[in-house]
């Protein structure tokens, strides 16, 4: 059976990009974020929030990344939900503080943010679900 992969509507749509921890690459992550938000059929205002959130999350991990580190961004679209993971090696080995303006911004832009630190690598996981009903 050789059905094309895209014909399985229930299968998650996964894209991962890796780039060096340099602010010049933030725009790249934003562009992929917008494309994946479109695949989750998010309305434009939520799509723009996702762009801003990825901008903020990538900027946060870059600030604490050692020279020569890579940032990995993975995007998973499942139905109307978009999960984004932004991770990088961390100099401090600590999660970003929750009492900063940057954190306030990030949590206002997405439905949920969780942070994990594992072997000196910080991962910000963002979850976005479509807020409104859209006709298919």
């Amino acid at each position: 059976m050789s059905e094309p992969v895209t014909s399985h509507p229930g299968a998650p749509d996964v894209v991962t990009v890796t780039f060096s921890a340099d602010t010049r690459n933030v725009g790249l992550a934003r562009t992929v974020a917008a494309a994946m938000a479109a695949r989750a059929d998010l309305p434009l205002d939520q799509l723009e929030d996702v762009r801003l959130a990825v901008d903020e999350a990538v900027s946060q991990v870059i600030v604490d990344a050692p020279d020569g580190a890579d940032v990995e961004c993975s995007f998973v679209v499942q139905g109307t939900e978009l999960d984004i993971r932004v991770s990088s090696a961390s100099i401090s080995g600590r999660p970003p503080a929750h009492d900063t303006f940057s954190w306030t911004v990030l949590t206002a832009l997405v439905d949920d943010v969780t942070v994990t630190v594992d072997a000196g690598r910080v991962t910000l996981a963002l979850r976005i679900s479509r807020q409104v009903a859209v006709e298919a």
Binding site: A38, D41, P43, L44, Q46, L47
Partner: peptide, 19 residues
């Protein structure tokens, strides 16, 4: 707010064009 798909259908272009 409309979705990218709705804008594409409404303007008769592709979703990539909208992006």
């Amino acid at each position: 707010s409309p979705t990218v798909r709705e804008l594409a259908e409404s303007l008769g272009v592709t979703t990539d064009d909208i992006l």
